[in-house]
Amino acid sequence: MPIVTIQQSPRSVEMKRELAHKITEAFVQAYEISPEAVQIFFAETSHENWAKGGELAVDWKKQ
């Protein structure tokens, strides 16, 4: 049973719904399994709790 974990900044429910559908379909086609066998976890981190290149993501918007 495939388990997919996605770490990202917050996204809308509609976007996560679409991504979950597409990822599930990819596993169904590639592994020839049922959609129910695919599990997807979304781990969302706010911009104040994420940094890249030594700068918090919340500060990127200010530049």
Rank of each mutant, 00 (worst) to 15 (best):
A43G: 10
T5C: 07
F27V: 03
P2G: 05
K52D: 10
I3V: 13
S34A: 15
V13P: 01
I33Y: 03
E32Q: 15
R17H: 07
D59K: 13
A30H: 09
P35A: 14
K62P: 02
A20G: 15
V38N: 13
I6Y: 05
V28P: 00
N49A: 14
L56N: 13
T24H: 02
Q39E: 13
Y31K: 09
E18P: 00
E55H: 08
E18S: 02
H47G: 13
V28T: 04
W50F: 13
T24S: 04
S9I: 11
H47C: 03
S12R: 06
S12P: 07
Q63T: 13
S12F: 02
I40P: 03
W50N: 02
G53N: 12
K16G: 03
A37Y: 00
H47M: 01
E48W: 04
G54A: 07
L19G: 02
E44C: 01
I40Y: 03
K22W: 00
A30E: 01
F42H: 00
A26W: 08
K61P: 07
F41I: 11
D59P: 05
V58L: 05
A57C: 14
I33N: 10
F41A: 13
S12V: 05
Q8P: 01
M15I: 04
S46W: 05
P2D: 10
E32S: 14
A57P: 08
S34R: 08
A26D: 06
